[in-house]
Amino acid sequence: MKIVDILAICEGKLLTPDVDVSSEIKGGFAGDLMSDVLASIQAESALITGLCNPQVVRTALIADVRLIIFARGKKPGEDILNLANDEGMPVIASPLGLYQISGRLAQAGLPSYETEMNLFPKN
């Protein structure tokens, strides 16, 4: 799914004007805990989060995330946007909630890019 399509679906605003909105996003992941993101997000996906600090961008860079969507009307500050712009990381702000965005994107065909965790590992 292209960033430009995701932008429309989550009724969002693109906050990094220089990025290529035609680039492809392969899946989605929603979460507020960055350790959870690092533990189970697959590369080249969109990260939908209600957390709003520079660590979100750094986590995204480390985990090869291709798009950050700040949910629940969170407005990322200049420090976040400067970092995102410097690193070419696309950032969208959406007025919708995490569940709403995830549901809409899943319905539109964007698969979950969250690795399932083994609840009861053998060792």
Binding site: A43, N53, P54, R58, L61, I62, D79
Partner: peptide
């Protein structure tokens, strides 16, 4: 917290420049 993760991103970039695969750079990162 402001700079949290900056060092790790530098490390990841250095590994990529040194020729590490995407997976290795990501896991180390």
């Amino acid at each position: 917290f402001l700079h949290g993760g900056a060092a790790s991103n530098h490390i990841k970039k250095a590994l990529q420049r040194l020729g590490a695969s995407r997976q290795i750079a990501r896991r180390c990162g």
